[in-house]
Design a protein around this nucleic acid. Sequence first.
DNA 1: ACTTCATTTCATTTTGAATTGAAGTGTCCG
DNA 2: CGGACACTTCAATTCAAAATGAAATGAAGT
Lengths: 172, 172
Amino acid sequence: MNPSVIANTGVSETGASLLSIQREMASVFAEIADLFGNPSSLGAIYGLLFASPEPLSMEEIVERLGISTGTASQGLRRLAEMQAILPKKEDGERVTRYEAKLELRPFVAMFLEQQLLPKIGHSAERIETLKQKLSSIPKDSREELGIRMERASKWHRRAKTFLPLVRKFLGG
Amino acid sequence: MNPSVIANTGVSETGASLLSIQREMASVFAEIADLFGNPSSLGAIYGLLFASPEPLSMEEIVERLGISTGTASQGLRRLAEMQAILPKKEDGERVTRYEAKLELRPFVAMFLEQQLLPKIGHSAERIETLKQKLSSIPKDSREELGIRMERASKWHRRAKTFLPLVRKFLGG
DNA sequence: ACTTCATTTCATTTTGAATTGAAGTGTCCG
DNA sequence: CGGACACTTCAATTCAAAATGAAATGAAGT
């Protein structure tokens, strides 16, 4: 009668249903992580913890998601670094358990600050450098290209002022 | 004395320098495309056209970027679809030449509308569906999970109202 | 109708990032 | 000390997405 056939690792009857919700939540967050250029396992782990009232150990995460210990270990580390989850070493326990922080901010911030801003900054630099090379090309092209690169620079400036705003808005 | 060793396909002395600028610009835009989850060839083609005062044919693009005809063909189609470039079939000419539109809007809009919004919408739906499954789990977990899913829904709603705003701001 | 040449298509190949898993590290407790 | 256990590391593997390139298509000119 239990519809879930997979990896019933000592979880109670009703637990199976909770597990299916947790797996679905993991899958939803996996998609989102992927959308933002993160490994989907990151999202899956976060999603599972998000849908877990009780903190989970790495072993439980590995079990419930069917991922490898390596992936879980690295994923947990990155999530902790980006402050999306909270590791809790309980008193006399051997294991570390993790719980999801429920704010969106860490996710968004991590993406904006670690991915977007640096890369935008980097390409802005490259364009500045290019502007200087312009002097060495024929006059006709030079003028038009100068205009275009100025335009590209403008985009970058706008993005740089705008992104922190996004962060503020979504971060609350 | 010419520093450029690669694929000098009958381009004049000064042209080599222009070519190097175009290649660098292609590379900058390739990175940006990649950052937004698009194939980097898309960015490269757009970057080349952006740094090209004269419209270019597919053959010229293939030559200058060293990509295959297949990649060029598909890339040009997608760029034209997203209105980032303009195909110009000249009077009695065989070839189609392409020029870059210089606005950022098509790029941003394409990303927001084709990638972000639909996927955000999709995961919002999945979470709504999940909310209904909540009734079948034990009371204690149910309450906490209900709160969390409500929170997740809130994020999605916020994102959905906010993204069109981004579009308007960057799109000008 | 035939040739030529630009372009598209798509089965195959390449590439690179994510994942695996087994060996290694460290730590706790008897 | 030593063995059990939680976790980390990293070389090897997997896998999906992108790129290739040769064959198919199609449009122009003769």
